[in-house]
């Protein structure tokens, strides 16, 4: 194999040097301790899996009973309907999970769709800067840097299923007063 010309090598070298240089401008990421417990939690989030459907009587999977405050459920259904054009939103899975400061957090309301959350820092209004990864089985569907705030959830429109659609909602619970 021939070695690259000097100018080509410089083309690679300088961006790397610049990135090294930038890395020195920011404080290093703290290394997590070897033992995980007790892990510092930044917030509590709800990961909710909805089945958006045109049919109110669409048979749902016979799984564990999933509960949500009726007022919250109704409000969410109304908000979801403004984005996804379905009249019915059936809650089929729920996972309430702490978001850790130094560890990845997995939100698993379903075996079929789950969400990895990496906390990236606090956001205005008590929210969280997060890196999200939505997984379907062994495949990551989307990666996203975004903000979750109390009252301002993230809706992830997922794959179609049985004439409807799976929708993943992640919302931050309001901090306890």
């Amino acid at each position: 194999m021939t070695s690259p010309s000097p100018s080509r090598r410089h083309f690679l070298t300088l961006p790397l040097a610049a990135l090294f240089s930038i890395s020195h401008a920011f404080p290093p990421t703290p290394t997590p301790p070897a033992t995980p417990a007790p892990a510092a939690a930044e917030a509590l989030v709800d990961g909710l899996l909805f089945f958006a459907s045109k049919d109110a009587t669409t048979p749902l999977p016979k799984e564990d009973k999933v509960t949500l405050d009726p007022a919250v459920a109704q409000s969410l259904s109304l908000r979801l309907a403004k984005v996804f054009k379905f009249p019915h939103f059936h809650l089929i899975g729920r996972h309430t999970q702490k978001v850790f400061k130094e560890y990845e957090s997995w939100v698993v309301p379903s075996k079929d769709l789950c969400l990895k959350i990496d906390f990236q820092g606090p956001a205005e209004g008590g929210g969280l800067h997060v890196h999200l990864q939505l997984w379907q089985d062994k495949k990551v569907l989307v990666k996203s840097d975004t903000v979750i705030s109390p009252g301002q959830p993230v809706f992830l429109g997922g794959p179609k299923w049985r004439g409807g659609r799976l929708v993943f909602v992640v919302m931050q619970q309001a901090p306890a007063k």
Binding site: P61, G93, K111, D112, L141, F155, W161, L166
Partner: peptide
């Protein structure tokens, strides 16, 4: 709400039972 709407995803087969948890 922040919306991330994924288009062109492969549909989940109708025959598949979604395994959900609480």
């Amino acid at each position: 709400a922040t919306v991330i709407d994924l288009e062109n995803l492969e549909a989940v087969p109708d025959s598949r039972e979604i395994r959900a948890f609480n």
